[in-house]
Design a protein around this nucleic acid. Sequence first.
DNA 1: TAGAATAAAAAGGATGGACTTAAAATGACA
DNA 2: TGTCATTTTAAGTCCATCCTTTTTATTCTA
Lengths: 219, 219
Amino acid sequence: MTPNKENFIKAIYELGGDDKIISNKELAQALSISAASVTEMNTRLLKEDLISHVPYRGVKLTPSGKCIANRLIRKHRIWEVFLAEKLGYDWNEVHADADLLEHASSDRLIERLNDFLDKPTFDPHGGVIPNKDGSLPETSKFPLTDIAIGEHFKVKEVDDDKDFLNYLRQKGIQLNHSYTLVAVDPFESSLTLRSADNSEKIIGQKAALKILVDYESPA
Amino acid sequence: MTPNKENFIKAIYELGGDDKIISNKELAQALSISAASVTEMNTRLLKEDLISHVPYRGVKLTPSGKCIANRLIRKHRIWEVFLAEKLGYDWNEVHADADLLEHASSDRLIERLNDFLDKPTFDPHGGVIPNKDGSLPETSKFPLTDIAIGEHFKVKEVDDDKDFLNYLRQKGIQLNHSYTLVAVDPFESSLTLRSADNSEKIIGQKAALKILVDYESPA
DNA sequence: TAGAATAAAAAGGATGGACTTAAAATGACA
DNA sequence: TGTCATTTTAAGTCCATCCTTTTTATTCTA
């Protein structure tokens, strides 16, 4: 596993390749290389069973590919915590150095660093730190009604009720999308959410109880 | 400057290439590569003016080569201090991880780490940490008579007197060699030194005053 | 001081990673 | 169903790293 391969895996992950197929073109643009180079790297990673491939559609990470991506992100984020918390880096400075260090860190080093930092849960950007084994920590899910005004969250689970799902679709609320709670009506208890595209959605209190969410970093 | 080149430079340095010529064969053995590969790397580093070359004798570091070696060693040793002091590494564990990290450390990172560690002077093995600019810290020199029993030191300077130099040669005391002070005679004040090859040398007190030494790590 | 032993340089490859361009194959969609 | 965007394949460049073998030079020693 070379730094290059690691970065390739990471790029797939960051484009969403843990659950959807990422096209050749997207990757080529993200990495600033030609599409042909992407194909070439794909064949290498395919051999190692780190990605799965749908011809002419693109690639996504296999379970072991996801594991590697998460372990790399774990290293990256633990370093970020160290740089920010112990070395006084500004939050916008941490990324570059963490990007170098993540490829030069033994497991032992990362675990000791993790202990030294008191096992942080989030990096300075609010990103969650994956587990040692490459899995993602159990993320708590709780009703949208428990969110405080101004907080950012992601929709994790919704009640499997046809009418309710239609209601959500009509409102434009989608699973795994992120929103910010901007207001709660004092009388009706209806919630005003702002989505990533800055549109505002008003949700009734009854619906809010059935939407499970989790905190998320603002980025 | 690739990690490979850096390690090559470091190997030369560690074999003593800062002041004497290191043969092709020595380097080949130290790096476990063929002598021809050493020659090849030599030509590359020669182009960059990092080493100087005496045909059929070997190579030594140029001033800029030494600078690079020292800066690398600075990185290495600062990391070692961090691993040992903050992460609880045992002194024999630090080397491997420091060897990886030294190649993935920006100058900014090293300087902040250095501050975080309160600007240490020695690494866990007792090795001195070079300055930021790649120079070696002014090492103090003082008479051998100031050394306490049991301490390790290196001979830094000796009086330029013919008889005295002959005396030293006869005793087997050499500049830049390391010794341990094992005993001081209570009556004569003569000093018993042990050299690296475990031979013992007895030095008169008058001579000891004219031998300037500095502390050194036991390794 | 003339070999013999040894070391270095030169020559010629081999490999693998990371890129590219150009042409052929494919899929999507109007 | 034909056009167009995208993907794949093919072919090849460049560079770093390593190798072995064959001179060539030096050094050691008898």
